[in-house]
Design a protein around this nucleic acid. Sequence first.
DNA 1: TGTACATCAGTGAACGCGCGTTCACTGATGTAC
DNA 2: TGTACATCAGTGAACGCGCGTTCACTGATGTAC
Lengths: 187, 187
Amino acid sequence: MKISKEQVAENRQAVLDAAATLFRERGFEGVTVAEIMKTAGLTHGAFYGHFASKDDLIAQTCTHALAPFSAEDAPVVGIMDFADYYLSAGHRDDPGQGCIFSSLGTEAVRSSDATRHTLTESVRHRIENFSQTAPGKTATERRQAAVGSWAAMVGAVMLSRLVDDKELSDQLLADTRAWLEKSQAKK
Amino acid sequence: MKISKEQVAENRQAVLDAAATLFRERGFEGVTVAEIMKTAGLTHGAFYGHFASKDDLIAQTCTHALAPFSAEDAPVVGIMDFADYYLSAGHRDDPGQGCIFSSLGTEAVRSSDATRHTLTESVRHRIENFSQTAPGKTATERRQAAVGSWAAMVGAVMLSRLVDDKELSDQLLADTRAWLEKSQAKK
DNA sequence: TGTACATCAGTGAACGCGCGTTCACTGATGTAC
DNA sequence: TGTACATCAGTGAACGCGCGTTCACTGATGTAC
C-alpha cells in the first residue's frame, strides 16, 4: 500500500492541520496522537513515519500554524484593526483557528526547546510588526505601546474564555478594546 | 494509626499548599496525585480521604489559593502598585507562589465547572478592586482601565515566561509596565 | 481515673485504563530491464 | 511500451509505562463504662 509522493505530502499537511486545530481547542495534553491521525484520515501507526515523537509534532505544528505571521513579507497590520478581530466573540469562540498564545500560552511554557523557540520568534515578529504603526514619539514608545497592547489582547482573550459567565466574558473583550482605543488615541 | 483532628486539618492544608505550588509550577496535568501527597508528607493512598478526585482537588486548590484576594475585606490596591509586583522578574521566576491566571489560564479553560466558577468570581473581584482606584471620569471608564490594565499584566507575564530569550522576556515586562504607567497618567 | 474497645486517617500493594510508541505485515507505486 | 520486482507509506495489533483510583490492613485516638 505504497502511496504517491504527492499523497504523502498531503497527508503530512493534513496531520499538521488537524493537530493545529485540536491542540488549540483542547491543549497539547488533551489530544492524543491517535485522535489527530484519525482526524487527518489516517491510522495512528502512520504517525511515526512523519514525526519523531508527539513533542516533535507539537514543535512542527507551532511552526506550521505561525508561518503566515512569521514570513518576512507579512503585511503590516494596525493595532486596532487587529484588535477588532482578536477581541471579537468569533475569535474567543473558535480557539481552534485562533491565536496560539491565548489558547496554549500557559502550557507552552513547559514545552520543548524547539517549540518555545518557534514561539519566541513569533512573539518578536508580532511586536516588530505592531511597532511600525503603534503610537509614540520615539521607537521605544512605539514598542512599549505595541507590547502593552498585544499583552492586553492575549490576556483578555484568555480570561474571556476562562470565565463561565457570558456577560462578564463579553465585558472583558469590550472593555479591553475600549481601553486600547483610548490609549492609542492619546499619542 | 488514627490521627488527631488537628493533625487531619493540618494534613489537608499541607496537601492544598503543595498542590497550589506544584500546579502553578507545572500545570494541572503535569503533576501527579502521588507527587502532591509526597510533597505534603503523606502517601498517595490517603488522598481520597480528603478529596473526591483529582478534579475536586484542583477546584479546592483554586479556592484555597485565591482566598486571600476574594475576601470581602481584601485591601484595595492601586494598579501601578500591583503592577510593580506583578510585572517583576521575581513574580515571573516564581510561578509557584504567583498569580494563578498567568500560570494556569489556558489549561483552566478546560477544567471542571467548579474550578471555572471559582476563577470567574476571582476575576470579578479583581476587576472590582482595581476599578476603585483606576483612572477615569465615569465608572465605566474606570472599569475599562481596570480590565485593560489587568489583562495586559496577565498576558505580559504569561508571554515573558514562555519566551526563551531573557532579554526579550525582561523587555516584555518593562515595556508593559511603562505603557501601563503612561496610560494611567493620562486621566 | 483507669481500662477495653470501636473508630478511622493513613499505608502501600494492586488494579485497570489510556496513551505514546513499536513492529510485522500489506499492497500500491515507481523503477529496472 | 510492457513486465517483474524492490520500495516504503500506511495498517492495526501489541507493548509497556504512568497515573488515577481502590482496598484490605494498621495502629493511634478518643470514647464508653
